[in-house]
């Protein structure tokens, strides 16, 4: 009705993810205070690294009013490529990463071209290509994992388990990724184009924005963040598994949605995504701490998502009702 109540809803919308996080923390703390012990929280930070990185790319896809469901396939393929190129083909770690990144980028270009040139909806396109990427991974690996030998693992181990100035190196990677992408989102022409396309594709085209080219770049970006997630995964595990990406798509999308980005496009919220990724991993970890069954874990994850979505639609409804003209 008046200015202050409008502001409450705006604040609630903006910081809703933090509120949900705190509620979740209190609930779990009541069940067992050990779950919010600093050591536990620190381990959340560590295990969230690849979801955080993957979700950052996903934020751009969702902001363009699209979605990339093929990230688990790309991640599985990249994990296997990285480990096998190093172990079977004798490539150095750096060379293996470059080859892997090029292949990941090609996967992204394939997605982008199918979406923009053949005009297949992103949801369907990436669902289909995900199956292909998984299949290719299985053929390539014979459905077996590859373990890195100590000598070849040394370099990646620094990334996966090393510390700099007392802070795990993985954390630096996540911070760097978010710093760069936040800059791209807010300050670059690419960021504005993505938001323009997500907001109104017809208008974007008529404005002279090269929509197809921009969208292809978006899917290359999600593929590259999936590849980076794969590097972090292999660096942590010291091995690759063809199942590495299972559930990765859902975790990433959940993180983005929890973070307050609009699935309808045009509005992305990267910092929200980061907190969303932490929340997803936190909830998962607490549930495995409680050694509840997989079924219960899935139910709780679903409920968290429903809660977050109701919250965001409630706040935006309240704002529309009072604010809009």
């Amino acid at each position: 009705m008046n200015k202050s109540s409008t502001n409450i809803w705006a604040v609630a919308e903006k910081y809703g993810i933090f509120i949900i996080f705190i509620i979740a923390a209190i609930v779990f703390a009541c069940i067992n205070p050990k779950m919010v012990h600093p050591d536990q929280l620190f381990s959340v930070l560590l295990s969230a690294s690849w979801v955080a990185v993957g979700a950052a790319g996903m934020t751009f896809a969702i902001c363009s009013a699209g979605m990339d469901l093929s990230v688990p396939g790309i991640m599985a393929l990249c994990c296997s490529l990285l480990a096998k190129l190093i172990m079977d083909n004798g490539l150095s770690t750096g060379a293996a990463i470059i080859v892997m990144a090029i292949i990941a980028a090609c996967c992204g270009i394939l997605n982008g071209v199918l979406i923009t040139k053949l005009k297949i909806p992103p949801f369907i396109t990436t669902l289909a290509t995900c199956l292909c990427f998984h299949g290719i991974t299985q053929v390539y690996t014979g459905n077996n994992g590859t373990t890195l030998a100590a000598e070849q693992y040394a370099c990646l181990k620094v990334l996966g388990h090393g510390f700099t100035l007392g802070v795990p190196n993985k954390i630096y990677v996540v911070i760097l990724v978010y710093a760069i992408l936040l800059f791209v989102y807010h300050k670059s022409a690419f960021g504005v184009k993505i938001r323009a396309i997500g907001s109104n594709e017809t208008a974007a085209r008529a404005t002279g924005i090269k929509v197809d080219r921009t969208l292809i770049a978006v899917y290359v970006m999600t593929a590259l963040t999936a590849a980076l997630a794969a590097i972090l995964n292999v660096a942590t595990m010291g091995s690759s598994s063809p199942k590495a990406g299972n559930g990765f798509d859902l975790d990433c999308i959940t993180a983005v949605v929890l973070g307050g980005s609009a699935l309808s496009g045009g509005k992305g919220r990267l910092t929200g995504t980061l907190v969303g990724a932490l929340l997803v991993v936190f909830v998962n970890q607490c549930l495995s701490f409680l050694s509840v069954s997989e079924a219960v874990r899935v139910i709780v994850t679903g409920l968290v998502l429903v809660l977050a979505l109701s919250f965001s639609s409630l706040t935006s409804y309240a704002q529309r009702k009072e604010g809009g003209k």
């Binding site: 938001r195 323009a196 907001s199 109104n200 017809t202 208008a203 974007a204 008529a206 609009a262 045009g266 509005k267």
Partner: peptide
């Protein structure tokens, strides 16, 4: 409305 403005921007 549909082809001109980017409403959310």
């Amino acid at each position: 409305k549909n082809a001109g403005i980017f409403a959310s921007m």
